[in-house]
């Protein structure tokens, strides 16, 4: 256990140290400038403390980002005037509110994308015509920067009268269904000819072969692609929030922060997105471990 955790901790420690050093050196010019205007001279210790506590630093220090994350979640909701404790609804300045908006679009799109991906994969595996004509396009579409479509989908949907959750979920859907399709096709085809022959000697029907052999065999592949898909779905939801003009969601926080030069807001939104991604991938990984263990994989 220790042998596995220690190297990771060491690498993370080095990264944080580099971050602090970068924060000091990137914020120093502004501190010196301010000191010069005030007509004072900064000692080295004063310079370091000043660079790590600016209100709008070029690069906020890790503890500032952590502080901002804490302020815009717990403090805002529990003590804030618009927080959930005082008003009963989530504050529109808190990252919980914005994170939830992004998360709901992500999950909806992920569910659609997974369903669609599995259906297409089943069709591809069972119809040679589908396999010949659709599969090359599924693979080719992986090489296309589909995210470029996002602004258009949002605006066109708004023109038709659809706003809010659904357009973002559509972007998440098409980002997440490609990995699921590719993974499921590989998984449904993974059983060997010998296993199919065995089922044939039992005179199993096509449906039985699908339910008893293909579907269980595809589970490891499915979970591997689900992890990719949910990360892609989150990116889709965040990018889908950019063209709406910074209304709500983590993407909107990023955009608003970049408009007004609020670096702390950008970094806290970025870390909220990272935590969200890590939590969702971790959750999928947990389900994967439980399901695969119960199905008898890896024994």
């Amino acid at each position: 256990m220790m042998a596995r955790v220690l190297p990771v901790l060491a690498v993370v420690g080095v990264l944080v140290a580099i971050w602090y050093a970068a924060a000091v050196s990137m914020n120093a010019p502004w501190s010196r400038d301010q000191a010069q205007r005030a007509g004072t001279e900064l000692s080295r210790a004063e310079l370091v403390t000043d660079t790590l506590s600016q209100r709008r630093p070029r690069l906020p220090a890790p503890h500032q980002v952590a502080q901002e994350l804490w302020n815009s979640t717990w403090v805002e909701e529990v003590h804030g005037r618009r927080g959930i404790v005082n008003t009963g609804t989530l504050s529109n300045r808190s990252l919980i509110y914005h994170g939830w908006i992004t998360l709901s679009a992500t999950l909806l799109g992920f569910a659609f994308g997974t369903g669609l991906g599995i259906v297409i994969a089943v069709a591809i595996v069972h119809s040679r015509a589908m396999d010949l004509s659709v599969m090359p396009w599924v693979i080719a579409s992986q090489t296309i920067p589909i995210l470029a479509l996002a602004p258009m989908i949002i605006v066109v949907m708004a023109a038709v009268g659809l706003t809010g959750l659904v357009p973002k979920a559509i972007i998440s859907t098409y980002l997440s269904f490609f990995p699921v399709t590719v993974g499921m096709v590989a998984g449904l085809r993974s059983p060997g000819a010998m296993q199919f022959d065995l089922l044939r000697t039992y005179s199993a029907s096509g449906l039985q072969a699908f339910v008893m052999l293909r579907l269980p065999a595809s589970m490891p592949y499915l979970f591997a692609s689900l992890k990719v898909a949910i990360a892609a779905a989150l990116i889709g939801a965040i990018v889908g929030e950019l063209p709406t003009g910074a209304v709500a969601g983590l993407g909107a926080r990023l955009l608003a922060g970049s408009y007004f030069g609020q670096t702390l807001q950008i970094w806290s939104a970025l870390f909220a997105a990272a935590i969200l991604a890590a939590a969702m991938i971790g959750l999928v990984g947990l389900v994967q471990r439980v399901v695969l263990a119960r199905m008898g994989f890896g024994r």
Binding site: V11, K227, L234, I235, I238, G251, W267, L270, A278
Partner: peptide
């Protein structure tokens, strides 16, 4: 650590880089 960072929405660093 690299595997973890590769899965994160790094495209969100865009506003920082533009700054």
């Amino acid at each position: 650590v690299g595997n973890f960072l590769a899965a994160l929405p790094i495209v969100g660093t865009a506003p920082i880089m533009v700054m």
